[in-house]
Structure formats: C-alpha cells, structure tokens
Design a binder for these strands. Structure first.
Lengths: 193, 193
DNA sequence: CTTTCAATGTTGACGTTGACTACATGCTGA
DNA sequence: TCAGCATGTAGTCAACGTCAACATTGAAAG
C-alpha cells in the first residue's frame, strides 16, 4: 500500500514540521489541520498526540528548553568561575541565534501563558543552574561584595535581553547585526569583567 | 433609539477593549468578532477601522510604543548624563510593569513579525533616543573608554531583559518578585555605576 | 435648505480552524 | 488466537477572519 494506515512516528513528525512552519508563519500561522495536510494524514490525526494546539506548542517549548539546557550544559568542561559563566551566557545567545524558531516560542507570551508543569519545571531547573554559576563565580572571587540575588537578576535579564536583541528581526537592523558578535562579547564582559 | 446606528468612536473603543481582552486571553484569545459582540456592534463593523486582525494588533503596538516613549520622555527634566540614563531605564521598566498588556504585545514575535512602517519608525525613534542618552552620558565622563555601540547594545539588552523578567509571570516567581524593585535598581546600577 | 457622497455600520456568505464523537485499523501480549 | 489499546479516519459543529452587497448617517457643496 502506498501510505500505511499508521504513520510510524507521527508525534515527532508533527513536532519537526511544526517548528519549521513556526519559523515561517508564526504561531497564528500554525494549524493542526495544516500540519496534518503536510504530513498526509487525516485532519484529526494530530489530536491523538496533542489534544489541543496549546499542548503542541507546549511540547515544542519543552523540546526547546531541553535543547537550550543541553547547549549551555556543554560548557561544563570549564572549571567553575567567571570563565564558565561567560561561556554559559554566550552558549545561550548562540543557541538563540541558531534555533531562533524555538527561541521565539519561548519568548512568546501567548505560549508561556499556558506553560505546562513540565515546562515550568524545566525552566526552573535552568534558573537554578544560572544561580549556581553565579555562586561559583563569586566563590572564585568575582564581585564578592554584591548581593547574589542582584547578580542573578542581572544575569537573567542581560542574557534574555541579549538573545532577543540579536535574534529578533526588528532589532537586528537597528541594534545588532549578526556579524557584530564581537560586540556581544564586549557587552557581556561589561558585566563580567 | 436605543442604540444609534453609528457608534461614535468605535475605533478607540475597539482599541481599549482589545487591550483589556489581550491582558486576559492573549493574542489567540482575541477575536474581531468577540470585540464586536462586546461593543454591541455587528460582527463586521471592526473591519471598517482595522481591515485585518494584524492591523489591529499593529495599531495597539503603535499606541504602546507611543505610550512608552512618552513615559521615558518624562525624565527629560534631569540634565543629560548618567542620572538621566538611569531614570530612563527605570521609567521603561516601570512602564512595562504598569502596562504589561502593551508590553506583552511589543514582546510578541507574532505581532512584531508583521510590524507596520509606522511601528518600526516609532521603534527606530526610541532606539535613537537610547543611543543619544548613551552619548550624553559618555560626554559627561561615564565609561569614556568603551565603544558607544557596545554600550548601546548593552543598554538595549539590559533594558528589554529587565522589563521581561519583572513582567512575565514565568519569571516573576523565580527571579524577581514585584516587591524586589530595589534589586532592579541595584542591577541597573551594576551597569551604570 | 436640499442634494450628494464618503464614512460608517449591517447582513449574509464562504472557507478554514480547533475540537468533539463515533468508527476503523493494526500491533502486542496474554 | 484474539482481546484490548494505541493510532488513524470520517463526519460534524461552532467560531473565526474576510469579503461583497447593501443601509444609514452626517457633513460638505450647491
């Protein structure tokens, strides 16, 4: 038979295709039915894997945060300290540039508004990691006279902000062209150095 | 007659009601037909003022940026310099807290993806203002040895990031509770001081 | 004061979507 | 083998965005 009754791995196929569509048409341009059409299955097939559109977006966000955590976890080879903190921030920004569709999802208030428990747990885990790196950097002598909570707030804000500015089209022309990555590093070093 | 044929000022009523709905249900929960129902007009009446939903969102975003510019412009009483730069950043963050629905709109990639020329022009104007304040602060002796473009990138990133972190629900519990505004100031001063 | 006309609102229609239900198919393990 | 569960299909419904045709109104032009 040309098309088997069962797709094989529809769930992952939906996720992959959805991410692709999202990067082209955004959240409002993404439809479960369109996805089904693209993959050659019936219009209600996606509902077997994601009961609602919100659930699909959440699953994508979960995949995104997982990918982000993996990317920023790759710097653990460095010894704890400012250098590793720096590597983590840059890994975040680079990840956002490379996976801008996923980053957009995580930045979309309409998606995060309905964040599942899984998703918020993952985000909390990442926040803990950031807090931990701050602590390690302070223990190695960096900014020992500053409240760790203030440093944490600054870190999270600066990281998120830099990722946005280097990723979103509206800013790219005006603030940070992709080729000005050296400026990004210099900006981060204003905080670290 | 009970309800006059002409509404009077449907355009502004649509904008106001849309902002209210947005803060409760988000972009996907906002519908032109629902708006029409809420205001007691026919389902197609809104189209006379906003031909598409995207157009309505753009108009809201324009109103938002205008409001933001006005808010940050209120600090012009201060003489140019670091103090005024500081006031501008804090005015931005405070504006984001107070008008979080508008801020969310401006942070929604799905909205900014279809930004109109009006909107991008306004955003450019605001970016120019930020660049100008950086220049003024440097002329008053602040961080004279740093590339202005790097400072500008840092300012935009930190401002946007802080506004997000203090505004978005996902962060509020974890990073910055509303009552920790003193931490926000301390965080900003890491950059300014 | 009329006449005209652009702005504004209404009605009805069309295609698409998310979501529900009932049903069909196929894999797997008892 | 075959019972049961996961997965896919088909049909339906209300809501939505958008369009076109028509109605009403106020204001400008004569």
């Amino acid at each position: 038979m040309n098309t088997p009754y069962h797709h094989g791995n529809l769930r992952q196929a939906l996720l992959d295709r959805a991410i692709k569509t999202l990067s082209e048409k955004g959240v409002e341009g993404l439809s479960l039915r369109g996805l089904a059409r693209d993959l050659g299955v019936s219009h209600a097939a996606p509902l077997r894997h994601f009961a609602t559109k919100v659930e699909l977006l959440n699953a994508i966000a979960v995949e995104g945060v997982g990918s982000l955590i993996a990317a920023t976890g790759g710097v653990d080879a460095n010894p704890p300290g400012v250098a590793r903190l720096r590597a983590m921030i840059l890994a975040y920004v680079d990840w956002a540039i490379e996976h801008s569709e996923l980053h957009h999802i995580l930045r979309n208030p309409d998606v995060m508004r309905h964040a599942s428990d899984d998703l918020t747990a993952l985000l909390a885990a990442f926040a803990d990691r950031q807090r931990q790196e701050i602590k390690a950097a302070q223990e190695s002598g960096w900014r020992t006279d500053t409240d760790p909570e203030v440093l944490f707030l600054h870190l999270v804000s600066l990281t998120a902000g830099t990722a946005i500015v280097t990723t979103e089209e509206v800013y790219q022309r005006r603030v940070a062209a992709p080729e000005t990555r050296s400026n990004v590093e210099a900006s981060i070093d204003l905080f670290l150095g």
